[in-house]
Amino acid sequence: MDLALLRTFITVHRAGSFTRAAALLGLSQPAVTSQIRTLERQLGRPLFLRQARGVTPTTVGDELAHRAAPHLDALVEIAEAGLDEEAGVRTLHLAGPPEFTSVRALPTLTPLISQGLALRASFVGNSEDTLAGLAAGHHDLAITTARPRGGLLSSTPLCDEEHVLVAAPRWAARLGPGVLLRKGSVVLEQLPVVEVHESLPFVSRYWAAVFDSRPAAAGTVIAPDLRAVLESAASGAGLAVLPRYLCEGALESGRLVALLDPPVPPLRTYFLVVRTGTLALPHIARAHEWLLRAAADW
C-alpha cells in the first residue's frame, strides 16, 4: 500500500474535510479526492461518507486510521529527527493571546534558541481564529482559552489564570473598607470601567462568577490589549478585571489595589493545542514540553 495514500487518508480523517486536508498537505482538493478514491478501490471498501460539510469516516475508515496513524506518526518522527540534525535551525510558528504569549510563552521558549529553534509569534486575541489558523497550517503550536473539538487538533491543559478586580488607590479609598462585602456589585456601578472590548468580557465573567449578575455599566475606556487596560486602570481611569500574573507587579508596588478577595476567585484555563500527529516533530515536541514544564510554576 502506498504510504502517500495513507498519509492523505490520515490527514483527511483528522481534518474531517477534503478541502482542509488539501491545504494541510499542499495539494489540490481534486488530488486529495483522487487519492482517497484510489485507496478505497485498493481496499474494496468506502472509507468516508461524503456530506454537505466535510466527510465522516466509516467504521472501516475509523479502524484503518486507528491502526495506521501511530505508525505514520512514528515514520514522520524518524524522518524529521534526521532533518532536525541536518537543518541546524527549525522555525516554530506560535500563536496565542498577545499578553500571555508575550509575558509567559516567549520568555519560556527563549532558551531553546540556543538549541537551534527560531520563533515566529502571531498574536491572536480570539480563540476561534487561533484554532482556525492552526487547523489551516498557519501555526505549529497555539495557546487558547477554548478546547478544540474533533480529531484534527489535540489539546493539553496548560494552566489556570486567576482574575482580580482592581483599581487605582484613589478609587479604592473612595469605596471605603468593607463596602463591597456589604453592598456587592451595586456600589461598583459608580465607577468607570476599563476593558478590552465593548462586550466587557473580563468584567462580565467576573460579575457572573462572584456576584451572580451582569455588570450594569458600559465601558469607559476600551483598549484591545490587557497591558493597556492595566496602565489605564493604574492611571486612575477606572476599575478593571485583570489576570493576576499580569497585574502582580502593580499590586505589589501599590499602583493598583485589589478591590475584592472572593473565597473562590474566577479562573480561566489555557490550553496548549497542536495538530494531531505533529508532536512527532522534534522542534514542536520540545517547545510543547518546555511550556508544560514551566506552567507548573505559573
Rank of each mutant, 00 (worst) to 15 (best):
V221T: 11
R275C: 03
A209W: 06
L259K: 07
R214D: 03
S235V: 00
G238E: 11
A250S: 14
P265D: 08
S235W: 05
G219Q: 05
A217G: 09
L279S: 00
D225S: 07
T276D: 01
L267K: 12
G236Q: 04
P215S: 11
A223T: 13
C247H: 14
A218H: 10
E248D: 12
A217P: 00
D225L: 11
P263Q: 07
R244L: 15
R214C: 01
A258E: 13
L226D: 12
R255Q: 15
V273H: 07
L251K: 07
E231L: 13
R268S: 15
L242F: 08
G254V: 07
F271M: 00
L246Y: 10
A228G: 11
P262S: 04
R255K: 14
I222W: 02
A217K: 09
R227V: 04
P215R: 07
L260S: 10
A258D: 04
P263C: 03
T278Q: 08
V273L: 10
R244A: 14
R214F: 03
S232E: 12
A234K: 06
P243E: 09
L260R: 08
A218W: 07
V257M: 08
L272G: 07
L260F: 13
F271P: 00
V257C: 10
A258M: 03
R227G: 15
A223G: 04
T269W: 01
A218D: 10
Y245T: 02
P224M: 10
P265K: 06
D225N: 13
C247R: 13
G238A: 12
S213I: 00
R244I: 00
A228D: 13
L267R: 15
S213R: 12
L246I: 08
L239D: 02
G219D: 06
R255T: 03
P262Y: 06
S235F: 04
L259W: 08
Y270A: 12
P243S: 13
P224T: 06
V264K: 01
G277C: 03
E231K: 14
D225G: 09
Y245E: 06
V241H: 06
G277E: 01
A250R: 10
V257P: 08
G249S: 15
R244K: 12
T278E: 09
R214K: 05
L260C: 09
S235E: 14
S253N: 11
A234S: 14
A223I: 13
A240E: 08
E248K: 14
D225V: 04
G238N: 12
A250Q: 10
L239I: 15
V257L: 08
E231Y: 06
T269D: 02
L260V: 05
A209P: 01
E248N: 11
R227H: 10
P262R: 09
T220D: 11
G219S: 10
E231P: 08
V273R: 10
T276G: 04
L259S: 05
E231A: 15
D261G: 08
T269I: 01
S253T: 14
R268W: 00
T276Q: 11
G238I: 04
L267N: 00
T220A: 13
A237F: 07
L239N: 05
P215H: 02
R275D: 04
L256A: 10
V241C: 09
A228E: 15
P266H: 07
R268F: 03
T220I: 00
V257W: 05
R244G: 03
S235C: 09
